[in-house]
Write a protein that binds this DNA or RNA. Structure first.
Lengths: 228, 228
DNA sequence: CCCGATCCTGACGCCTTCTTGAGGACTTGA
DNA sequence: TCAAGTCCTCAAGAAGGCGTCAGGATCGGG
């Protein structure tokens, strides 16, 4: 059985360019096309593409916003295509979560090669798990849902990010600095007090006895760990 | 335990460019430099860098050959930097195993951003399992877990660092000064009493008979050794 | 503009960990 | 046998990390 062709979400508001991209990709990939940022986000949810080809110049949303919105729930590679060639634009996009940045005009061959690189990277990743369960806790990364014994648990943004970071390293010790960087961004290094406060809140919401946690384990002097 | 700066192998035969790259990288990374392909391969083996920055125009080997040779044994990201901007060159390099391709001239900011992308990808790859076992003791460096006969053993930060240092030189004698430097940092030189106290604690937690240690061996006047 | 949710910050007590010291055992060589 | 150096053990006080709580600042939606 041959593998199905990867699915690429193509996002561009100009029809001629979409046509060019479609023609370029059609031999090796299946494509889905969106003309606006909102449409892109909706189709991405719907089709869960293997990669996204994204033009930054969209009529409704800023391209960077699309990138960061996508990044909240998917690790699929995003290749940005843009007429803007300024270095600051490239840096913003790449640091914002894009995996590559191509400046128009570019050759079809280079686009395909860079797309192959992106898909190569994605293929090496372990399948991104979307649902985690431990005890009576259930975490759905796709829908940003957390339930305990079936009951929905409301988490604030920081609490949720903290939990996700722990979940993504399930079983391993996650150092204070890594947690701080993931949740509060770089520059929060050393503010371990944040972690104490938010871990306490997470425990209050998820643990039976927050004084004797079963899952959210403290590793003194090092960090925290999610026991599976 | 703070995370060390990533190590970048910089390969370019022109000294001024190497200097430029070094200056660009020096705030965020440690660098190793090579001027030829052969040197690059040898240094890569020796240092196992987190990423490689490679100029294709080398005096001895073809740049593509360096890429494919590296790819036979390492998955570290390779960012190609080249004066050749022809599309065919880019395609060949990217399909040959490079992860990105920058055409000179390029901005320092873009280089750094693309390097961050490359390292971000590498960080998501599954880590190599690092487990050491001797007797009924099992040490998992990745999970920071220590078990004895299957039962988890709780170690304080200093105890754990001390054990890790010994494990990393398993079988060999580790001098007092090296242990002190690794665990207590520079400036603790001469405080061998620390070692006595902490070795005693380790033995109490890991050995059957701490008076007759099977693994944590004293080398009088020199240091300690982990017998395997 | 107001209100609620969320985030930051500080204070406090508890507990673990680290440091330091003292005493005794062992080894080695004179 | 003695002396000197090195090592082990035990314990107590100091230091620092952690959990908890609550007040006030800040943010965002209505």
């Amino acid at each position: 059985m041959s593998e199905p062709q990867p699915l690429i979400l193509v996002v561009d508001d100009e029809l001629p360019i979409r046509r060019f991209l479609r023609a370029t990709l059609q031999d090796d990939y299946r494509t889905v096309e969106a003309g606006t940022g909102a449409e892109a986000l909706s189709l991405a949810r719907q089709y869960n593409p293997d990669a996204v080809l994204l033009d930054l110049g969209l009529p409704d949303l800023d391209g960077l916003e699309v990138v960061s919105k996508l990044r909240t729930w998917t690790a699929a590679p995003i290749v940005v295509v843009s007429a803007r060639g300024r270095e600051a634009d490239k840096i913003a996009a790449l640091d914002g979560g894009a995996d590559d940045y191509l400046t128009k005009p570019f050759g079809a061959g280079e686009l395909l090669a860079r797309l192959r690189v992106a898909l190569r990277h994605a293929a090496r990743l372990p399948d991104a798990q979307e649902v985690f369960e431990f005890g009576d806790i259930r975490i759905d990364l796709l829908f940003r849902n957390v339930t305990r014994a079936g009951e929905p648990v409301h988490l604030t943004p920081h609490e949720y990010k903290l939990l996700v970071t722990l979940v993504q390293h399930a079983g391993k010790v996650v150092t204070h600095n890594l947690l701080l960087k993931q949740v509060w961004g770089p520059g929060a290094s050393g503010q371990t007090h944040y972690l104490r406060v938010y871990m306490a809140q997470l425990r209050a919401k998820l643990e039976v006895d927050s004084a004797r946690p079963r899952f959210l384990i403290t590793e003194p002097g090092v960090g925290y760990r999610l026991r599976t």
